[in-house]
Amino acid sequence: MIRGKAVVFGDNVDTDVIIPARYLTSTDPKELARHCMEGLDPQFPERVTPGATILVAGKNFGCGSSREHAPLAIKGCGVVAVIAASFARIFFRNAINIGLPILESEEAASRIREGDMVSIDLATGEIRNETTGEVFQAQAFPPFLQEIIAAGGLMNLVEKRVKANS
């Protein structure tokens, strides 16, 4: 179970606003986190309580570039999960690969308001808005993706496979 206060954004949040390209010479999540969402809200890192913030957004979250620095910056800020009406596909893969929990629910994305307290059961995909009492069900991931998520990211699986073969 993860829990946090909602910070809400709109549709089509792109990777250029999540982490502007001028900061991409760094691969350090902490450094990237300092500039997270800078294009939309330079004060964003201050809106985040590390370990207790859930980012909620509309459709096509993470559209644009393939930069994995985008989910790394969000995770680096201490955001515990992202709920969106839908995700752009490269961001979707990247978030799963680096172990940033993401949930797709159009209803939750449209009903959760800034500051609402939200809890998520990652095992079942149940999203609970504790402030309003509403409950939403996120789309279930196929078993193969669940395996990556359970392993804590793609490279943990790859490493296991490589070391088993050597």
Binding site: R67, R93, N94
Partner: peptide, 17 residues
């Protein structure tokens, strides 16, 4: 297009999902 982790995995495996 994919991200860096997917590419790293493909360099090791020669494949992807």
């Amino acid at each position: 297009g994919m991200g860096s982790t997917d590419l790293a995995a493909s360099w090791v495996l020669g494949e992807t999902w």
